[in-house]
Simulated scan of single mutants.
Amino acid sequence: MDALQLLLNRHSNPRLNAPAPAGEQLENIFKAGLRAPDHAGLTPWEFIVFEGEQRALLGDILAAATQAKGEDADTIDKARKAPMRAPMVITVVAKVKPHDKVPALEQHLSAGCALMAMQMAAQATGFNGVWRTGWFAFDRGVHTALGLSEQDQIVGFLYLGTPQVAVRNVPERETTPFVRYFGQ
């Protein structure tokens, strides 16, 4: 599949089995993320990988955050099991650095671009995944447990693995409702 077809057919697949990407395939996924737009060369990203048994550690972190919110036992258990939905979860973090010309928002967007590039690279190599965010991405307890600084921001959790099922075709959208030519 060429690059344009990959982009035009981008889709998420939340039904994932082992294996997850590994070795050169995983290294290429990280390299794709590192090609994200990066004003001033700040490299404002960190990719925290949870695979195998480490997914249970992430589950414990999510469960603790859920419990701290006062949720019921079923909701806490669901949070604990969430990372087990895929053989690998990569937490993508915007590592915001002070810069006069590159505001935090731009660094967050850069990290988001890195996450999408990684998902696209996974898809290009026969894997797939889904980008999840939710309130966990903004929870200070989760940030603390992951060793993040006050200015850091999780932009998403990239669940990766081998697709269990083919995804349905996503209908093509007309561009007209989303495009406006200024002055016309």
Results as ranks from 00 to 15, higher is better:
Ala68Tyr: 12
Gly70Lys: 14
Asp72Pro: 10
Asp72His: 08
Asp72Val: 03
Asp74Arg: 14
Asp74Trp: 11
Thr75Val: 04
Thr75Cys: 07
Thr75Ser: 14
Thr75Asn: 09
Lys78Tyr: 07
Ala79Gly: 02
Arg80Thr: 05
Lys81Ser: 09
Lys81Val: 01
Lys81Gln: 12
Arg85Glu: 09
Ala86Arg: 07
Ala86Thr: 08
Met88Trp: 11
Val89Asp: 05
Thr91Glu: 04
Thr91Gly: 08
Thr91Asp: 06
Thr91Ala: 15
Val92Asn: 01
Val92Asp: 02
Ala94Val: 03
Ala94Arg: 01
Lys97Met: 12
Lys97Gln: 15
His99Leu: 13
Lys101Gln: 13
Val102Asp: 11
Pro103Asp: 09
Pro103Glu: 08
Pro103His: 08
Glu106Met: 03
Glu106Lys: 07
Gln107Leu: 03
His108Gln: 04
His108Ala: 00
Ser110Tyr: 00
Cys113Val: 00
Ala114Val: 01
Leu115Trp: 01
Leu115Gly: 01
Met116Val: 05
Met116Asn: 09
Ala117Val: 00
Gln119Asn: 07
Met120Asn: 13
Met120Pro: 07
Ala121Cys: 08
Gln123Asn: 05
Gln123Thr: 06
Gln123Leu: 05
Gly126Asn: 11
Phe127Glu: 08
Phe127Gly: 12
Phe127Gln: 08
Asn128Met: 04
Asn128Val: 03
Asn128Arg: 05
Val130Met: 12
Val130Arg: 05
Val130Thr: 10
Trp131Asn: 06
Trp131Gln: 05
